[in-house]
Every structure is written in C-alpha cells, then in structure tokens.
Design a protein around this nucleic acid. Structure first.
Length: 295
DNA sequence: ATAGGGTTAG
C-alpha cells in the first residue's frame, strides 16, 4: 500500500501509513524509500536513514539501502541529491564500505563530475575491480578517451567489463577503428566477448561499412550460443540494413524473442532507406497491431 | 522492497 501510494504521487498518505506501522522490517523501509525515489524527493531520504539507525537496523543493511538510493541518483543524473546522500554517509560513518564507496564513484562519474569521482578513487585504499571499471566508464561518458585509456592500461587486472567499457568508449566517440583494434587485442588476450561487448563492435562495423567483419561477428554469436537480446538484435538489424542486406536484417528480426520499439524502428527505417516503402509502412501497421506504441 | 561496474538506433 505504501508503494501504491508512492506510485500515484500520494507521498504524504504513504508516509502516514508508514508512520503508523508497528514493527518495521526491511520491506517497509525500502518501500518508503522507493516512494521518495519515485517522486524524486531525495531530500526526505536522509531522515529515513536516521530513523533506521534509531531503531537499531544493522549498518550493513543501512549500506545496502543507501547504495540503492545512490544508484537511483546515478540513473537519474541527480547529482545534487547524490551529494546529499554522500554527506549523510560520511556523517553516519559508512563511507568506507567498499560498495558504498563504489556507488559514490559511479554516481559522480555518471553525473559528469569526474573530478569528484577521481578524488574519491585516489584517496581510497579500498579499490577493487568495480572501482576501476566505474572510473573508466566515467572518463568515457565524458569524452576523456585518453584518460580512460591511460587508466585502462594501468589496471592491475582487466575483466570483461573493463574491456567492454573501453571498447564502447571508442565506439561512442566515433573512434571506430580503435574499437576494432582493441577488440582484436582483447581476443589475443584470450578474453571471450559477450553480448554487451559485441554491441559496440557491431556498431563500429556499421559506421565503417565493414560488412565482412560484421558477418563474422554474427557467425560468432550463433557459434557461441549467445542470446540475441533486444539491443544486440537492433544493432545487428541496423548493420545489415545500412549495408543493404535487407533479407539478413529481417531474418534477425523474425528470430528475436522480445522486440522492443527500437527493433521495430530499426526495421521500419531500414526498409524505408532501402526503397521498400510499402513494406516499411506494412511493418508500421504490424507494429501497432502487436500493441507496441510508436515513439 | 533492495543489494556497487560495460550495451543500439533516430
């Protein structure tokens, strides 16, 4: 009920209900917090954390909840609110939990405050793989490819996420040849790409009109039994359509289990730019029949 | 109810 009130914007009703509850467990605390989150009322969250402490909730539980709020701030690019939570974490003495520390690095880097992220990173004696990967993706996101690459080179160990973050950084900032070069290097190191890695690599192939390499990756996907999810499928459709291989694109589309609006868009657009106007309009009708709302 | 990092297109 608390969550329900939150979903329809009746926050004060949710709070009244919450205050009247006897015996507040983890479910109820997070329900109240998600209610504030959904209504972007981050300023009210600290009080809830304070109450959790008064009622004797364990620190590790508080950390999980604070991390989830920070993660919401990162997704919403809500840095002011994230800073508020940061200050609160320091006050209640949980800033040195490694998960929390990483959630802070991620929040700042995703919000574009790369300096704040870096100073947490530099000051820390508890860096793990995730801290490094968050920093790399932060540099990406803000277009500092050189810094990202320097950090990447100096990483003690690189996992699949580190490689994918660096590869997608190149792809997102139009460094398509570097994308393919790094992908090649990754394979030489014996790291097997997954669906996420391949999305960036296929996108680079599309921009370079490197159809043969793109086809090689498609074969690799089939051979490795990787699942063609919505994003991967859409990326493949886009590649085949831009290279004029309409049949291959349609084959991918038909085989996809979940077709998001983006997959429909890629097909509709692809048919149109290949001169198949009627087919494009047919697909548009089919999409609406399937209950997918156009955007 | 929640639990830290990488994914497409226009």
């Amino acid at each position: 009920m608390v969550v329900l009130f939150g979903k329809v914007g009746r926050v004060s009703d949710a709070r009244k209900l919450f205050d009247g509850l006897v015996g507040r467990d983890m479910v109820r605390w997070t329900a109240m917090l998600s209610c504030y989150e959904q209504n972007e009322m981050f300023h009210d969250a600290p009080e809830i954390f304070g109450q959790m402490r008064v009622e004797g909730v364990g620190m590790d539980v508080v950390v999980v909840v604070v991390v989830s709020v920070l993660s919401a701030c990162a997704n919403l690019l809500a840095m002011k609110e994230g800073e508020l939570i940061h200050g609160l974490s320091v006050r209640i003495g949980i800033e040195s939990y490694v998960n929390l520390h990483n959630a802070l690095i991620h929040m700042y880097s995703r919000c574009g405050n790369i300096r704040a992220a870096r100073s947490l990173f530099d000051a820390s004696h508890l860096l793990d793989q995730i801290s490094w990967n968050s920093m790399i993706s932060g540099y990406l996101n803000c277009g500092s490819i050189e810094e990202a690459r320097n950090l990447f080179n100096s990483m003690p160990t690189k996992d699949i996420v580190s490689w994918s973050a660096m590869i997608s950084g190149y792809a997102q900032h139009d460094h398509f040849s570097e994308t393919l070069v790094l992908f090649h290097e990754m394979q030489l190191q014996g790291i097997r790409p997954d669906e996420t890695t391949l999305v960036s690599v296929i996108s680079a192939c599309t921009h370079l009109a490197a159809l043969e390499q793109g086809k090689w990756i498609h074969t690799y996907i089939k051979k490795s039994n990787l699942k063609i999810n919505t994003i991967l499928g859409t990326t493949l459709i886009d590649m085949y359509m831009k290279c004029g291989c309409v049949e291959n694109a349609l084959e991918i589309f038909q085989g996809m289990e979940d077709k998001g609006v983006s997959s429909w868009n890629a097909v509709i657009l692809g048919l149109a730019v290949n001169g198949l106007v009627e087919e494009s309009l047919d697909k548009f009708s089919e999409m609406k029949r399937c209950g997918v709302a156009p955007n």
